[in-house]
Design a protein around this nucleic acid. Sequence first.
DNA 1: CTGAAAGCGCTAACAG
DNA 2: CTGTTAGCGCTTTCAG
Lengths: 329, 329
Amino acid sequence: MNATIRDVSKLSGVSTATVSRTFFDPDRVKKDTREKVLEAARVLNYSPNAIARAMALQRTNKIAFLICKAHSSILDEFYAGICEGIMKASNAYDYQLLISTEEDWISATNSAKRGQIEGVILGGNAKAERVLDFQSRNIHVVMVNNRISGMNLPYVLSDERDGTRQVVQHLVERGHQKIAMIAGRFSPYICSERYNAFLDAMKEHGLPVDARYIRMSDPDIDSAVEIATELLRQKDPPTAIFGANDIIAIGAIKAALRLNLRIPEDIAVVGYDDSSSCRTTEPELTSVHIDRMRMGQLCVEKLQALLRGEGVPEQVSVLPAWLNVRGSS
Amino acid sequence: MNATIRDVSKLSGVSTATVSRTFFDPDRVKKDTREKVLEAARVLNYSPNAIARAMALQRTNKIAFLICKAHSSILDEFYAGICEGIMKASNAYDYQLLISTEEDWISATNSAKRGQIEGVILGGNAKAERVLDFQSRNIHVVMVNNRISGMNLPYVLSDERDGTRQVVQHLVERGHQKIAMIAGRFSPYICSERYNAFLDAMKEHGLPVDARYIRMSDPDIDSAVEIATELLRQKDPPTAIFGANDIIAIGAIKAALRLNLRIPEDIAVVGYDDSSSCRTTEPELTSVHIDRMRMGQLCVEKLQALLRGEGVPEQVSVLPAWLNVRGSS
DNA sequence: CTGAAAGCGCTAACAG
DNA sequence: CTGTTAGCGCTTTCAG
C-alpha cells in the first residue's frame, strides 16, 4: 500500500506532526528537518492522503457543477464553455471539481455524495427545491445562466437584454424594418429574456411587431428550418430574422438558401450564443457573443467568497455580451 | 454542523455500528430497529459522511478523467461526448467523477490530489511518463482515443482504419478517382491512423495517390479554407476531398463554395467525427460517426473491471465507426 | 441481531 | 522549532 505519514515519520526520525507541517506549513520547520523529511517522502513515494486531510480539517476542497438539463446533450458547447471556466478557476483555488447532471446526482446514492462538497454551481433549470436542499445542508450555491425568484443566492448571468438590443440596433442600422424573431423552446429564463428584450427594442426603435413575424421553434435544426421556411414563404416576408439561438438561426440560413434567397441581400439572419457553428455556414452567422469561460470563472470566485464567509459583494453579476457581425447580416 | 452517526445513534438509542449497518447493510438489522434509525436520521437531516466512509474503507469511489490537451478548447465537442459517457457510466457505478486538464492537475498541489482517486481515464496525448506515475501509485489507468506503445493498460479506441476505409469506398462508388486528403495537425495517433488508412484504402482500390492531392492543415477553419483553396485552384484538381476531421472538411466546403464550385457535383467533401456542425452547412457534410458516448462508457467499464481486480478481458477495444452520408458527397 | 472498541491518515492544540 | 495526543466520522472485527 501507499506510504503514510507514519512511515515517513519513522524513516526520517521526526514526529508525524513535523511531517505534516513540512507539507502544509513548511516555514514552521527548520530547513534541515524539512529536507530530511522530503527526502524520506521521496524514497517512500509518499504523498499526503487528501481524504485523511479532509477528515481532519473538516473540509474537502471540493465543489460541484450540476447541470440541470433533462434531455439531449448535457455538455453542449455552451455548458462546456462554462465548464472550462469553472475548471480553470477551481484549479487556481486548488479546489477539485465534481461534475454531474442533476438527474444522476439524485439517482445515485445521493446521500453518499453529500458532506463532501463545500459548494455547488447550478446550471440550467434548477428548481428552488434543489437550492433549498443544498442550503439546508450548509452547502453554498451559485446559479449560472438562470434565475429563479425569491432565492437568496448569487447569480452569474450574461446580459441577455443588452445583447438582444444590440441585435435589433444592428439590423435597424442596416435598414431593416420588417424584423422577425424565431423564439425558442429551451431554457425558460433565457427565452423569455430574449423575447421580451426583442419586443422592447423594437418599441424603442418605433417599429411595429407584426404577429406574422413572431414564431416559436424547438432548438433543433429541422424544426428551425421548417419554421423559417413558413416565415419566408408568406407574402410580404420579413427582411431579417433574429433566431433565439444559433441553432435556430442556422436553420433560418438553411431555409433561406434552399429558397434561393441571397443572404444578407434578401434576408439577413442573426443568432445568439456565438457558437463555433457560426463560422461554419456560408455566409457566416452574425451572433451575440457570450463570455462563457468568464461566466464559469466568476461562478467559482463567488463560491469562494461565500466559502470564506466574506459575504457576496453583488448578488447578481451580469456580464456584458457583444455582437459579432459576420456575413449573414 | 451536520449531524453525525453519533447523533443518530443517541437519538435512536442504538449503537453507531447499527446505524452504520442500517445504511450500508440494511439486511443485517431488524426491521424495527432499522425504522427507528431511519426516523432519527430523518429528524436530524442526517446522511452518512462520505469522507469518513472513504477513510474507514480505504477507498474513495472516485475516478478522474484527465484531458491531456495543451491549447484551445479543452472540452470540445468530441471530448464533451466522451465525457458525457463517462459521467453516465460512473454514476451508474456510484462513482464520482473528477475532471481536469493534465496541465491543471500537475500544477495544482498535485500531491493533494493523489490517494483519493482509484483510477484515471486519460484522454488526448498523454505521455508514457504520466501513465507510469499513476501506476506507481496503484492508480489504474485507461486510455481513450490514443495509443502509446509498450504500456500495459487498456485502450478504448474508435476504428479509425475502417472509418477511413468507408470514406474511400464511398467516394469510389460515387465514381471518384482523384481523391485528395487534407490531413491534420492534431492528435498524432489519430492523424497518422487516418492518413495511413487513407493510403492503404487508395491502394486497395488501385488508385494512385497523387502527391499534389495530399495536404496538411491546422485544425481550424481559416487554415483549412486556405489549404483547400490551393488544392482546388491547381489545374487538374481533385474531384473529392477527404478532410481529416470535420473542421477541415468544412473549410473545404467553404473554399469550394467561394470558388463557385457545386457540391457535390464539382467537388465532393467528406469529413470525420460527425460533429454537430455537419448539419449546419449547405449541403450538409458526409462524415464518419464516432460513438463518443459509448467510448466514454466503455472506459468506465474497463476501469471498474480493473478496480475489481477482474483483469481486463481485452486490452484494446476498438469501437465500430460508420459513415453518415449527407449532401456533400 | 446488536454493542464496544480499535483504527483509517492526518491535523491542531498544547507542552516543551 | 518539535513532539504528544486527542480527535475528525465511519466501519468492522469480535463478543455477546
